[in-house]
Design a protein around this nucleic acid. Structure first.
Lengths: 371, 371
DNA sequence: ACCGAGCACTGAACCGGTTAAGTGATCTAC
DNA sequence: GTAGATCACTTAACCGGTTCAGTGCTCGGT
């Protein structure tokens, strides 16, 4: 079942070493011999045994991705499949495989990292779903393996990060709503122990306060549809309810739209809705969901590229920044209800928001109060 | 960075071989020596290098899963994450890793299988998304590696299959609608080159004809939200439109519900809707989506178990059948509109449908006309 | 007392590659 | 004409485990 390098060597009438040199495009064989060897290798259908290669070169030709999430939440997240597909486009070219671990039981996550690292199963890791105080950073620094993090963790980290500024998308969303005339804009936030849950909340709050609006309409969730519904009902049930809601992900936004309609209000007539992710279904709902589009596939590509570079040329690399997340305006956002349809005159504070149309916001982040 | 078996041997004052025997619970060492060796191994933090183990034992300690799908479709499918989580629970215990490949570009799928198989990177494969004439079967039979298929392919296959009878779920759904009084029940089908797209369509058609109803309201889609909307509009626009629609997955059902509402009809007042998958969001919509629940996580567990058995004890194993998919009744199904609310008298043909409540249908498949 | 069996363990080959060191042959330079 | 460099390739060690064929020892049976 295995044609080995020795078989090729015998066929070509050379030594194992010569075949190895030839196949790896290294000097030490003449061009004539190289092509003869390659010919025989192809003829015999030779493909090198990865285990053997790994053992002698002490590289695993694999990278690890450990996902620790409730399977239910995972199943509704459009991010990972596209992200993994992006990783794959690069890894496949480099003949590197992706070792995926989904950790559901508590403690399984840490064990998974250790297992992959200590066993020499992978050459590096992609670290996603970063948490605010993330003990995985220390854990992985201990292993000495290269790592690329998705966004920069709050704490110290010696690993390169591939950054997507989700701030811009949320800011654009809020400013889009403000431009439509909304003043009571709520946020259904994600878990605050995740940095992207937190950064989206911060972006919402900063944009609100920068425009002189009160950032009081927040509900923190677990990113799940159920708590999205609960948060929606809670916010709409308040004394001075929102006329628009910015959700931290599309799943909650979709469930939220449904809950809003069920409560007798219309989207966008009574309440405007903005999601985050641009899930494939978002454009096929009625009204279409206005949402913030990220490019998880390109994110995956870039992450894989940085990780491969870290594996080959040393783990100390600078961060890479992607194009910021951008707003996709669809039907779920419209001017708020009420007497003055387009309240353009009652702009509260100073600093004109100007046109925040469908994104391409290439400016630096908006002015942050204090900090 | 690596404490090897030789280090442990030296510490324990024995030979490499003895350590190997001790660690693998094989005879050849006394109980006293074994525990001494284990003690030292633990002390030194030894963990065996998988590459070396693989090379000498010619096992990869990894299994492969290749997914060939459009990333967009993948992203909205709740199946895979849960399925993979299920695989993982078993694989992690066996210290086997999952090598995941997402093939997006054409031809990448076949190359992925070959790469994993020929390189000796995996000990076996999980074959999902079976197609009607699936050339992967022959491809993998050629490699000689153990394989487990998700459901039994149409063509010849020497591999064991782990079966979920989605027929039962669709039949229950249709009978549930019939019991509610529906007669015009449409089906938004999945791609007909996928066996589960085809089997759901067949289950719908068989159940319809078994009840003397005409199975004319079908639209075939690609499982995507967009074509779900298009199919919905097409079916509702026909001369004698359906009062209920059975969708081949939840994504299309959700987009469909939205399209139905956008067309001025209510769910379930005017049109009842049934999905398939029981996506996490399904229960959090309003109305809740009546759908067919599968257990992808348990499916994954069982699949991994069968695959491991095939790897260890030979690839020829009998098929394993899981509990059939079951109907979860929520708010999106109700009696059809019209003069006679509960038309119980006008039961068309013979064979009483009886009570098709919320599942647990353990009977064999319903009577199939002809075949 | 001695033989044979069985046990506990060692030594070394082996898996299939990579790679440093070594070997001849040819080429160059003075 | 010969030292020395260069090239093209071979040889063999090595990666870190597994495993088989010994080896020495103890113990039981007669």
């Amino acid at each position: 079942m295995g044609v080995t390098i020795a078989d090729v060597a015998r066929a070509a009438g050379v030594s194992k070493g010569a075949v190895s040199y030839a196949l790896n495009n290294r000097p030490g064989v003449s061009e004539a011999t190289r092509s003869r060897i390659l010919h025989h290798a192809h003829e015999l259908g030779f493909s090198p045994n990865v285990q053997a290669r790994s053992l002698s070169s002490s590289r695993a030709f694999a990278v690890g991705l450990v996902i620790a999430r409730d399977p239910g939440l995972l199943g509704s997240d459009p991010f990972f499949p596209a992200f993994i597909a992006g990783l794959e486009t690069v890894l496949a070219d480099e003949d590197v495989t992706l070792v995926l671990t989904v950790a559901t039981r508590p403690g399984a996550e840490e064990r998974a990292y250790r297992r992959l690292a200590d066993g020499g199963r992978v050459d590096g890791f992609v670290l996603s779903d970063l948490r605010c105080t993330d003990n995985r950073i220390a854990l992985l620094e201990e292993t000495g393996l290269p790592v690329v993090t998705l966004n920069r963790p709050d704490g110290p980290s010696s690993f390169p990060a591939v950054l997507v500024d989700d701030t811009a998308g949320v800011r654009d969303a809020v400013e889009h709503l403000i431009a439509l005339g909304h003043r009571r804009i709520g946020h259904v936030a994600g878990p605050q122990d995740l940095i992207h849950g937190r950064s989206r909340l911060r972006a919402w709050r900063d944009t609100m306060t920068a425009h002189g609006l009160e950032a009081d309409l927040v509900a923190v969730t677990d990113f799940g549809a159920g708590s999205g519904v609960a948060a929606t009902e809670e916010l709409l049930g308040r004394g001075d309810p929102p006329t628009a809601l910015v959700y931290a992900n599309d799943v909650m936004a979709i469930a939220g739209m449904s809950a809003i309609a069920a409560g007798g209000r219309s989207v966008p007539g009574d309440v405007s809705v903005v999601g985050y992710d641009d899930a494939p279904i978002a454009g096929h709902l009625t009204p279409g969901l206005t949402t913030v589009a990220t490019s998880p596939m390109r994110w995956g590509e870039l992450t894989a590229r940085v990780l491969m570079r870290a594996i080959e040329h040393g783990p100390r690399l600078p961060d890479v920044t992607m194009a910021p997340a951008s707003l996709v305006v669809r039907g779920s956002t419209a001017p708020p209800p009420g007497p003055t349809a387009h309240s353009r005159l009652t702009a509260p504070s100073s600093t004109a928001p100007s046109s925040s149309r469908s994104s391409s916001s290439s400016r630096s982040s908006s002015s942050t109060a204090r900090e």
